[in-house]
């Protein structure tokens, strides 16, 4: 069966190419960041006086902090709303409404980040500005980021909840437990792995998001003192400066990309390993 064999070889080769892309990405990030890492080492990204790449000051800390603040803030917003949505479609919504709700959440997931950014800039920022400042600050960015990653939490929690054995729910109901008790004691604990996975995935999305934050966070490099202060995330920094960065500066930008890539990959691998163990037993 010659054609069968060539099919196997060709498709496997294609699979190897697909799988190798991720390595290629890591390779190029490493290659481009080597000059900076060799000259500066890791510590200067945290100990330098400030971020003034043109005068050789490369402190990434404020941007790392801003990235972490916006991402974790986004999760704080997205988790309750997303889990609430998932509980809603499974236990509270009439059937018709549940189907519609799912569809709309999927729609929300498909809205491009620039559109979120545009809406945030024109609609939300002026509202936030009433608390003081220009409205382009970490709070605005966090809220919009939260909305953006919410569908991830909602859809994955929904899947996890829907996969729970019907018998548990019927059994609990037959014991005279009310709806909220069933949700609180049986459903959420039973689905916690899936829900946790959704939240972690949402976190990687939030860490990886660029455009909305770039358009909303104000982009000033400084240690944020409150949620209302402007800030710049690592992603936004790359997007803002790669265009004109030269030599050493460019290399530092790749280092920050490498950091993002590593953090996200570690999280993803952790989740996929965890899911692997679940599948095995």
């Amino acid at each position: 069966m010659r054609s069968d064999q060539s099919l196997t070889i060709i498709t496997r080769a294609l699979a190897v190419i697909s799988a190798a892309i991720v390595l290629l990405i890591v390779l190029f990030l490493l290659r481009e960041s080597t000059p900076a890492l060799r000259q500066l080492g890791w510590s200067r990204f945290f100990t330098d006086a400030s971020w003034h790449p043109l005068s050789g000051q490369f402190n990434l800390t404020p941007m790392i902090v801003a990235t972490l603040v916006t991402s974790s803030g986004a999760i704080v917003i997205a988790a309750p709303l997303g889990i609430g949505s998932a509980v809603f479609v499974n236990f509270y919504a009439p059937r018709r409404l549940a189907a519609w709700h799912r569809r709309l959440i999927e729609l929300l997931a498909g809205i491009p980040s620039v559109v979120f950014g545009l809406w945030g800039l024109v609609v939300l920022a002026p509202i936030i500005a009433t608390f003081g400042g220009s409205g382009q600050n970490l709070l605005t960015a966090t809220i919009v980021l939260g909305l953006m990653v919410l569908p991830t939490v909602a859809l994955l929690s929904d899947t996890a909840i829907a996969a729970l054995p019907r018998e548990w729910i019927q059994g609990a109901a037959a014991l005279g437990m009310g709806r909220s008790a069933i949700v609180g004691w049986i459903v959420l604990p039973g689905a916690r792995r899936g829900i946790g996975g959704g939240i972690i995935l949402a976190l990687t999305r939030a860490l990886g998001e660029t455009m909305a934050v770039l358009m909303l966070a104000g982009n000033i490099v400084e240690m944020p003192s409150s949620l209302l202060s402007p800030g710049r995330t690592l992603n936004a920094n790359i997007a803002l400066e790669l265009g004109y960065a030269s030599a050493g500066h460019r290399s530092v930008l790749f280092v920050s990309g490498l950091m993002l890539m590593l953090v996200v990959s570690v999280i993803v691998l952790f989740v996929s390993r965890r899911e692997g163990t679940r599948r095995d037993g």
Binding site: V22, L24, I25, F28, L29, E32, L201, T204, L207, G208, E209, T210, N235, I238, A239, L242, L253, F254, G257, L260, M261, V264, S265, I267, V268
Partner: peptide
């Protein structure tokens, strides 16, 4: 799938 889009940009 988890690679941030800006990293795709860099790459």
């Amino acid at each position: 799938a988890g690679v941030p889009s800006i990293v795709f940009g860099l790459f």
